[in-house]
Amino acid sequence: MGFEENRFSEPFTNNFDYTSFNELFNLYYPRLCAYAYQITKNPTASEDIVQEVFIRLWKGRKELNIKGDIFNYLLKACKNASLNFLRSESSRRKTLEEIPEKDSINDMDLIEEQELVDFVQQCIDLLPQRSRQVFLMSRFEGLKQQEIAERLGTSIKTIKNQIWKSLQYLRTCLKEKDAI
């Protein structure tokens, strides 16, 4: 699923209805949650944050004047809400955990990072079968090299080789797409 072709094509206007809002939600919800999770490291809070951002968007849709892309707006809203969450959490727990400054996360980098995510997603789908299997087990199932080797009945060396192949493949694929 690509970012560019799946960008929400419909302009966000005052006439935004329930159905288009649902589409917008389905398209960006997992991405925005993953992003909030990157900041908060808390899956439940991330879902709450993103849901709240969407509900606020719906309530304010008649008044909001959103310039530019709706996804950029949502991403920034989630960033701010996530940072606010960290701040209130650290004051609640009276800890002095380091909270990223609002401006330390550059909005341009944010968008570029999301584009890279999309290209990576596309390239993963194109990986050769065997490398892909190992890569997914390592990345998506969070298995250690040793565990993958045991499951596939092979050596750690082979696993390392497969991961290496995947990395090489992904890098080439991303270079072709001018994404890296």
Partner: peptide, 25 residues
């Protein structure tokens, strides 16, 4: 960079929009 991006892709798969829409919708 690639590694971080795949981390992100992996996290995305943990969040289910259909389930969340029940509440938001």
């Amino acid at each position: 960079k690639i590694w971080r991006a795949t981390d992100f892709v992996s996290n995305m798969q943990k969040f289910d929009s259909k389930h969340a829409w029940r509440k938001v919708g």
